[in-house]
Lab assay of single mutants.
Amino acid sequence: TEYKLVVVGAGGVGKSALTIQLIQNHFVDEYDPTIEDSYRKQVVIDGETCLLDILDTAGQEEYSAMRDQYMRTGEGFLCVFAINNTKSFEDIHQYREQIKRVKDSDDVPMVLVGNKCDLAARTVESRQAQDLARSYGIPYIETSAKTRQGVEDAFYTLVREIRQH
């Protein structure tokens, strides 16, 4: 089974770092803004072998026109913010609204991801993020692309959301 996953969120929150940590098991430290990259990885989730087709997208506003296209083809979405960047957390709402509009559905598989949880300088409390996820009816997972904490959990949870859909 193949799953088309799309990673969305503001610029600099760590979308590529999360994806590369999942696929290649290493942490990319330097920031190089993405336009669009796709990665494929075969994994076993709950005993089922599946192929993850992951689209890593641009957070930069100037590429926002490309969003409709990949939102149409994606089956599930990782909505990523950084726990030390309140603005990126506030941006999640717009991504969710755009996904709902493009998919013409209120019920699209999504996982809210709070990345950079290895950093002490948190400005978005776990509780705020949990409340937001609960209001959307989606899971919330904290990750660190640096330490790998929660990385597999985030992507695998999204696959489970798609399966249950």
Rank of each mutant, 00 (worst) to 15 (best):
L55S: 07
T157A: 12
G114T: 02
V151E: 04
V108H: 03
R163L: 11
K100C: 10
R40V: 08
Q24G: 15
D118K: 01
P139C: 06
H93T: 13
E90R: 09
R160F: 05
R101V: 06
Y136I: 12
L158Y: 00
R163C: 10
D153N: 06
V80D: 02
D53W: 03
P109M: 06
F155D: 00
G14D: 01
V28Q: 05
V44K: 06
H26T: 06
R101M: 06
D153Q: 08
N85F: 03
M66Y: 13
F27R: 01
Q130W: 07
A129K: 05
R134M: 08
E2Y: 03
Q60A: 14
K116C: 15
R72E: 11
L158A: 04
I45S: 10
R101T: 07
P109V: 10
V151F: 15
F77K: 02
A58H: 04
V151P: 09
I54T: 06
D46N: 11
V7C: 12
F77P: 01
F155H: 01
Y136S: 06
E30S: 04
R101Q: 07
K15N: 01
Y95H: 03
H93D: 13
T34W: 00
T57C: 10
I83V: 14
G12F: 12
V108T: 06
Q24E: 01
C50S: 07
T57F: 05
L5R: 00
S64K: 07
I83Y: 13
Y70M: 14
A65S: 13
I83P: 13
S64F: 11
Q149G: 09
V124W: 13
H26W: 14
T157E: 11
A65F: 11
Q130E: 11
F89A: 08
H165V: 11
R160L: 06
T1L: 08
A58R: 11
Q164T: 08
E48D: 11
K4H: 14
T1W: 06
V113M: 08
G114N: 05
V102L: 14
G9S: 01
K146S: 15
K41H: 11
T57I: 12
D68N: 09
C79P: 01
V113N: 02
A120C: 05
K146R: 12
S126A: 10
A17F: 01
K116M: 15
V124K: 11
G137E: 04
E161Y: 09
A145F: 02
V108R: 03
E2F: 04
K87P: 11
H26Q: 10
F77N: 01
K146V: 14
Y156C: 13
N115F: 00
I54E: 00
D107R: 12
A121T: 10
I23K: 11
R163H: 04
E90P: 06
C117E: 13
Y136K: 05
F89P: 03
E30I: 05
I20K: 01
Q149A: 08
E142P: 04
D131W: 06
E152V: 11
G150T: 12
S135A: 10
I23L: 15
T57K: 02
A17E: 00
E125W: 07
